[in-house]
Design a protein around this nucleic acid. Sequence first.
DNA 1: AGCGTTCTACCCACTACTGGGTAGAGGCCC
DNA 2: GGGCCTCTACCCAGTAGTGGGTAGAACGCT
Lengths: 215, 215
Amino acid sequence: MKRKGDISVILVDNHPLVLEGLRAVLETYEHIKVVGTAEAVQAGLDISTRQSPDIVLLDINMPQISGIDAIELFKGAAPSTKVLMLSMHDSREYISASVLKGASGYILKDVPNEEIVRAIETVAAGGTYFSTGVSEVLLQQRRKQDNDPLPITAREREILTHLAMGRSNRDIAGLLNLSVATIETHRKTIKRKLGVSTTADLTRIAIEHGLTSAG
Amino acid sequence: MKRKGDISVILVDNHPLVLEGLRAVLETYEHIKVVGTAEAVQAGLDISTRQSPDIVLLDINMPQISGIDAIELFKGAAPSTKVLMLSMHDSREYISASVLKGASGYILKDVPNEEIVRAIETVAAGGTYFSTGVSEVLLQQRRKQDNDPLPITAREREILTHLAMGRSNRDIAGLLNLSVATIETHRKTIKRKLGVSTTADLTRIAIEHGLTSAG
DNA sequence: AGCGTTCTACCCACTACTGGGTAGAGGCCC
DNA sequence: GGGCCTCTACCCAGTAGTGGGTAGAACGCT
């Protein structure tokens, strides 16, 4: 029986073998209760609606409905349920998509059992869990900023920031008390150095390098 | 003494009281060894260089050098060290900045002791830890996309995507086999609907809503 | 049938940006 | 003291985008 303090979990994976393996691992932990397993998203949703589990361990590769799309369905079926994705891939697209859809964590299938348990505990406690390789992917933007600083001068960076915020050459000239011609020259130099030709490109690069934010 | 499997931690906070409180809490756990404490970033760096701890627990509000800037310094002083931020604020700016600079986690000072320990264990194991309120903030972009869909038509969204990728009206006209005038009309309509007037604004909105990515 | 919306396309005058130059003043390095 | 870079600023001709219109064809809804 599930007792107070226990964590209820349902497992959704289209491979019966993985399902049984996970159940066997998790059952060795007293405070984790596997209250259901399903080999298809729809069956999982039915269980989830009835049981409102603390955690859904969801395989990302599901036939019919993809695991990514299923995240929202599970959140809809039982709003208090946290979704923890289980995947064989550490591809950036999957991870970002999972986070955007509201998953609380993303772990790889080849991690040690203890890490799966740790992830379940962490997510149940209201945290997020992304396993080793995955956090590297999430922090990828940082590496880009570190390893690949923009090859432009400080003044040019300043101009670029204004440009990316939607200001015209004339606006910037006014702000910085410079001639419009000067801003145009800077703009040309920046474009040449960065190898782009449009304002949209400049804006994307500025956001990418943290000079301004999208939101 | 630190033994194999133990987690070595140094604490950096400019409040001696917090420092002592943390030390007292962590010392009740056998596998966590506090190998140093510092009330200033520079002193913390000195310790970190000598000890190469597994974890630096770093207060975000430090005088002189901000905790955010200190993240990079600690990563530089001992590359294998993971930085776990400790903060009283769950503001979006702090959290994003921390993640971008390379912090492996962000926890609030008012969380229960067990959560701090859990965070330390998780980060030491190579994961990331963001406590309850914090993960909400990280998932904020998702909410923006869900609650605030762009009030434009599918065709306009398509045009917007191309614009944000740096394509000119003429390029897009060519791609979609339309007249340049049509693209200009769409562009005007999109700007009016979104209440902006420049390409940079369009690009920022497109990225914000996931139509294209910054990188 | 009548209405609203979307997608398409054009007109016009105006402004902004582009891409090719050149160039002087000041700072830094060797 | 000569060389290199940065920041400033201008010239010019050309192209692109702006912001104000209008408008027809197609579609769905009632």
